[in-house]
Amino acid sequence: MKTLLITLTIALASLSALAQGVKVGDKAPDFNLKNVDGKMVALSDYKDAKGAVVIFTCNHCPYAQAYEQRIIDLHKTYAAKGYPVIAINPNDPAVQPQDSYELMQQRAKDKGYSFAYLFDEGQLVYPKYGATKTPHVYLIQKRGADFMVEYIGTIDDNYKDAAAVKEKYLADAIDALIKGDKPTLVNTKAIGCSIKVKK
């Protein structure tokens, strides 16, 4: 009996682990996080936006660094079209000191981020999205009062070399939404740095 209970508990625990996070078609969880300028930023603050590109990213990860300029450029292109970038650092600075709030402020300043770069203090937001790595992109579209998830994955098909990109998965998905269509590809995968949590 005891074994059965333990088995059931484990089964339930793994079920709830599977249920964590959003998938395409789900409502995007709201958040209220501190930006590098010291102000709090919530998804619901983006009242005039048509959607947003929520990117879990950070300072330290080489993949995040490889994509940094492309993220800056995406915001420049798509903020004016109603899809601003909202970057969120999900890492625990106690585990990854390069991803502290102060160093986020420094990086945003040095690289001239024109988008919000938010700190997931207490690491409560990334599990709601189900983010597993940096960078991890969630393209969301506003419908009524809600933001709905339309695309999850990576930015394009070449992390090493922006000039060698053949498939711009994310830009294509945003363009489709702007045209009133659905993205043709809604889930893509890339290597990234695991999100840093205390053991």
């Binding site: 994955g153 990576t154 070449n158």
Partner: peptide, 9 residues
């Protein structure tokens, strides 16, 4: 191999 979307799966 930069085509991660193919080989990861």
């Amino acid at each position: 191999d930069s085509d991660t979307n193919t080989w990861i799966n």
